[in-house]
Amino acid sequence: METILFYILSALIVIFSIASVSSRKILRAVTYLLFVLIAISGIYFLVDYSFLGAVQLTVYGGGVIVLIIFSVLLVHHIELELEVTPLKKKIIAGLISATGLGITLWAIYTFPFTNATTYKSIEVADIGRKLLGYGDGGFILPFEVISVLLLAVIIGAIVIAKGKKLNE
């Protein structure tokens, strides 16, 4: 049953990825990308990694896509279709993709996978304990540094978007 679901999700990811890069209307490409991201979160839920699945849905499916859509809408001539890719570029892109696929497959097939003897699902609580742990093996400092990073993102975005007006 899980195998069937896995193949359904994988097929969705592959189909919509191809649709996303081959669509000549830019807003449609973004919509296909949204489907890809949602299907990836489905894979995360399938392998019982529900926290990452939820983060994938909220941050990527919710946040990043909104950001990409707005940056697309900021483009001047959105109604224009992207030009047809020349054959030479298509061949180069195909070769690069094939190389990437080859390297990935080689890495997967040569890696000595062993069957896991004990199965432990990672709960949200485990992540929270690690993240907020102030003792040995805790990650409380990186956790606080994340907030500084997010602060830098806010300030950077405002400075760039507001531009000259800040100086007035």
């Binding site: 926290f51 983060v55 909220t58 949200v124 993102v153 975005a157």
Partner: peptide, 23 residues
Amino acid sequence: YLFAILFLVFDVEVAFLIPWAVV
């Protein structure tokens, strides 16, 4: 765009608040 990026920042914040709330 500015509002979208502010939304994204607080979206990421929620992702860190969830494990905190659990433990």
